[in-house]
Lab assay of single mutants.
Amino acid sequence: MKVTIEENEETGKFTIKVKTEDGEEKTIEIPKENLEEILAKLPPNVEII
């Protein structure tokens, strides 16, 4: 699983794009305050880009 994290400076939010092993892609946008909480919940086999 690969996770790409991009900061949107205009909105102050982060866009998180997840690509699973089977090629499925999902995108979510979260507030900056929630980034550490989300990262802590990721499984250890995740590659963060």
Results as ranks from 00 to 15, higher is better:
P31S: 15
I49H: 07
E24N: 09
V18H: 01
E33L: 05
T20E: 04
L42W: 07
M1H: 04
E33V: 05
V46F: 08
L35R: 01
E10A: 10
L42E: 00
K19R: 10
P43K: 06
E47I: 14
A40P: 02
I16H: 00
K32L: 09
G12T: 02
A40S: 12
I49P: 03
T27Y: 13
L39S: 00
E47S: 07
E6Y: 14
T15S: 06
E47P: 04
E36V: 09
T11S: 07
I49C: 09
V3Q: 01
V46G: 03
K17W: 10
P43V: 06
I16K: 00
E33T: 06
E9L: 12
D22M: 07
L39N: 00
P43G: 15
E7A: 09
A40Q: 07
V18G: 00
E36S: 11
E47D: 06
T20M: 12
K2L: 09
T11N: 13
E29P: 02
K13L: 08
E33D: 08
I38Q: 04
T15N: 06
E21V: 12
E24L: 10
P43S: 08
G12Q: 04
I5N: 01
E25Q: 05
K19P: 02
D22F: 09
K2C: 14
I16G: 00
E36T: 08
P43A: 08
P44R: 09
E37S: 08
E9F: 12
K13F: 12
E9Y: 11
K41V: 05
V46M: 05
N45K: 04
K41I: 08
E37C: 12
L42F: 13
L39K: 02
T11H: 03
N8Y: 02
E21M: 10
I38Y: 15
K17C: 10
K19E: 11
F14L: 15
I30P: 00
I16T: 01
I48S: 03
V3A: 03
E36C: 15
F14V: 15
K13V: 10
K41D: 06
E37I: 08
K17Q: 07
T15M: 08
K41W: 11
N8I: 04
T4D: 02
I16N: 00
N34T: 08
I49R: 05
E7K: 09
T4A: 04
T11K: 12
T4S: 07
K17E: 05
P43D: 06
E24T: 12
I49L: 08
E6D: 05
P44I: 07
E29S: 08
N45V: 04
K2P: 02
P31C: 13
V18R: 00
K13E: 11
L35T: 00
G12R: 02
N34Y: 14
T4G: 01
E21F: 08
L35H: 01
I28L: 07
K17S: 10
E6G: 03
L39D: 00
F14Q: 13
E37Q: 11
L42A: 01
G23T: 02
K32R: 12
T11V: 02
A40L: 07
I16Q: 01
E21L: 12
E36N: 11
E29C: 12
G23L: 02
K19V: 15
E36K: 11
P31G: 10
E47W: 03
I38F: 15
D22R: 05
E33R: 06
F14M: 15
E36W: 15
T4F: 14
I28P: 00
L35K: 01
K2V: 14
L39R: 02
L42Q: 00
T20Y: 15
E9H: 13
K13A: 08
K19L: 14
G23S: 03
V3G: 01
E33I: 05
I5S: 01
I5D: 01
D22N: 10
M1D: 03
I16P: 10
M1E: 03
L35F: 05
E33Y: 06
N45L: 06
N34P: 01
M1F: 05
G12F: 02
T27P: 00
E25L: 06
E6A: 06
L35A: 02
E7C: 15
V46T: 11
K26Q: 11
E29T: 11
E47F: 04
N45H: 09
T27L: 08
K26Y: 15
